[in-house]
Design a protein around this nucleic acid. Structure first.
Length: 411
RNA sequence: GGGAGAGUUCCAGAGUGGCCAAAUGGGGCAGACUGUAAAUCUGUUGCGUAUCGCUUCGGUGGUUCGAAUCCACCCUCUCCCA
C-alpha cells in the first residue's frame, strides 16, 4: 500500500490542491514538506500530536519534513476559527517556547542533514527582517483583499471585528511557503484543515511570483462525535510535556475517549497496521474497553516511551480493576512539616495542597457531596484531621470523584 | 473626523438604587445509573476561621444611609456616516 493510500485509509486527508501530483510526489518520497507550529506555549499539545505523526509517516516514506517554528507569525497571531484576539507574546517567550518544541519533536522525527532527515527552521529568521514597503512591493499585488475577506478562516472574525494585524497572518504564512520554496526547496505544505485558506495563499503566491506549482494538503481535524476538538479536558490542553500532563493523565485521557471515537483515534493516531485496526473494528461491544486500552497505551508509548506507558497502564488497571500495587505510579504530593498544625492537617487543606480542589470551599463541597475517599473509605466529615503518623509508609490515598487518585506522603 | 451603542461571574446573557454573590442557558465538578463510554436524572458552581464576614459587574473618582445600577472623566470594542 502506498503512503498516500494509507493516509486516505486512515482518514487523515481533508483537502488537497492537486491529488494526482501530490500522490506521486509523496509516494515517490520526493516531497519536502513543512508544517507550521505556532509557539504560544512552552509545550506541544495532544492537538499537535496528529501533525507529528503525519510528519513521521511521511518521513518513513522517504519525504523530508520541515518543522517550521512560528517565531515570527506567533507575533501576529492566527485568527483562524477564533472569536477573540490572541495575547501578544514577547520575543523572549517565543524563543523559549521554540526551544521546548524542538526537544519534544525529536522524539518523533529524525533531524539531520540527510536527504529525508528533518530540519527545523524558524520564520522569525526571515519575517522579522522584512521591510514593510519592500514586502508590499514584492508580494502585495499577489493578494486580493476581496478574496481574503471571503476566506473561511476570517469568517468568525468578520462578525466580531478583525484587526489589520491579524488580517496579515495569511500573508505572513504565504510568505513563509514562498520563502522556503525558494531557499530550501520546500514544495508542499501540510496543516490542519482550519489552515486551508492560509495555505492556498502560499501556493497562489508561488504560482504568481515564480510561475511554479507548489502543493498543499490539510489534515482532518480530530474532533469527537459531538464535533468538539479533541485534546482538551475542561478547556485545558492535554500536553505532551510530562511535567504539564503526567504520563498517567495522558494515558487516562485516551483511555476515556467516547465509544464513538475510539476507532477513529486508533486509525488516525496510531501506527498499528491497518489490517489489525480493521479487525478491531469488528470487535463486539464487550471489547470496546480493550480497544481503548490499546489506544491509550500506543499513544502514551509514542509520547513518553514504553516504560512510562507500561507504568501508566498498570496504575490504571490497578486503580480501576483492583489488585496489583502499581498504584505507586499515581501522582503524589509530599507534605512539608509546615503544612501541619499541632501535628495534624485538615482534610480540606490537604485537598487544596494536592490540587484536588482549587479552594477549601470547593474541597468542602466535594466532601459534602460524597465525592472524596481516603484510603478507600468515603470521607463525609470536612473537619477530619490527619495526624502526621497517618502518612507513614505508603502514605494516604485520596480519591476525588471516580477517576482522580492522589497519594499523599510526608517529606 | 461625526453620530449611535456596548463592556456583568469560565462562556453566552438577564439585571437599570436596597429583596444581588447577581436570573436563565451552556460548560465544569460531584452523586445516582453504568463499562474508567454515551445518554438521562439530582446536586453544585467567588473566597473565608462560615446561619456570619470579605472581595467581585471595563478603570478611576464622585453622588447616596446604601451603587452592577446614578454622575464625571478615561480605556476597550461594535455599528452607521466620512
Amino acid at each position: 500500500m502506498t503512503i498516500y493510500d494509507e493516509l486516505v485509509a486512515r482518514g487523515l486527508i481533508a483537502q488537497v490542491t492537486d491529488e494526482a501530483e501530490i500522490k506521486e510526489l509523496i509516494n515517490a518520497g520526493k516531497a519536502t514538506f513543512y508544517i507550521g507550529f505556532d509557539c504560544t506555549a512552552d509545550s506541544l499539545t495532544a492537538g499537535h500530536f496528529m501533525a507529528l505523526t503525519l510528519m513521521k509517516r511521511l518521513q518513513m516514506a522517504g519525504n523530508k519534513p520541515i518543522a517550521l517554528i512560528g517565531g515570527g507569525t506567533t507575533m501576529i497571531g492566527d485568527p483562524s476559527g477564533r472569536t477573540d484576539m490572541r495575547k501578544m507574546l514577547t520575543k523572549e517567550d517565543i524563543d523559549h517556547n521554540a526551544e521546548c518544541f524542538k526537544r519534544q519533536m525529536e522524539r518523533f522525527i529524525e533531524f539531520g542533514d540527510g536527504a529525508n532527515q528533518a530540519m527545523m527552521v524558524n520564520n522569525a529568521d526571515w519575517l522579522l527582517k522584512l521591510n514593510y514597503v519592500e514586502l508590499l512591493r514584492e508580494v502585495g499585488a499577489c493578494f486580493s483583499v476581496n478574496n481574503m475577506l471571503r476566506a473561511k478562516c476570517y469568517e468568525q472574525r468578520m462578525e466580531k471585528g478583525l484587526s489589520f494585524l491579524e488580517f496579515n497572518y495569511m500573508i505572513m504564512q504565504s510568505y513563509d511557503f514562498y520563502h522556503m520554496f525558494q531557499t530550501i526547496g520546500c514544495n508542499m505544505q501540510f496543516g490542519g484543515d482550519d489552515q486551508w485558506s492560509n495555505m492556498l495563499g502560499g501556493t497562489e503566491l508561488i504560482r504568481r511570483k515564480l510561475g511554479k506549482d507548489a502543493y498543499a494538503m490539510t489534515i482532518t481535524l480530530l474532533t469527537d462525535s459531538q464535533g468538539n476538538k479533541m485534546g482538551k479536558t475542561a478547556g485545558n490542553a492535554v500536553w505532551l510535556d510530562a511535567n504539564k500532563t503526567s504520563p498517567y493523565d495522558f494515558y487516562q485521557y485516551w483511555r476515556n475517549v467516547g465509544d464513538a471515537d475510539v476507532m477513529k483515534c486508533i486509525r488516525m493516531l496510531t501506527f498499528l497496521p491497518l489490517e489489525q485496526i480493521d479487525e478491531m473494528a469488528t470487535w463486539q461491544n464487550g471489547r470496546i474497553n480493550e480497544a481503548k486500552e490499546i489506544l491509550a497505551f500506543e499513544l502514551t508509548k509514542m509520547v513518553h516511551g514504553e516504560e512510562e506507558a507500561v507504568k501508566a497502564q498498570n496504575a490504571a488497571r490497578a486503580l480501576f480493576s483492583g489488585g496489583g500495587d502499581a498504584a505507586a505510579d499515581m501522582p503524589s504530593t509530599a507534605l512539608a512539616a509546615a503544612d501541619f498544625t499541632d501535628g495534624a492537617i485538615g482534610l480540606l487543606d490537604m485537598m487544596v495542597k494536592c490540587a484536588l480542589a482549587p479552594s477549601k470551599k470547593e474541597a468542602r463541597r466535594l466532601v459534602e457531596q460524597g465525592g472524596v475517599e481516603v484510603n478507600g473509605e468515603r470521607a463525609a466529615d470536612p473537619t477530619t484531621r490527619f495526624a502526621a503518623d497517618a502518612f507513614a509508609g505508603e502514605g494516604l490515598i485520596l480519591k476525588k470523584g471516580k477517576k482522580v487518585f492522589h497519594r499523599v506522603v510526608t517529606e
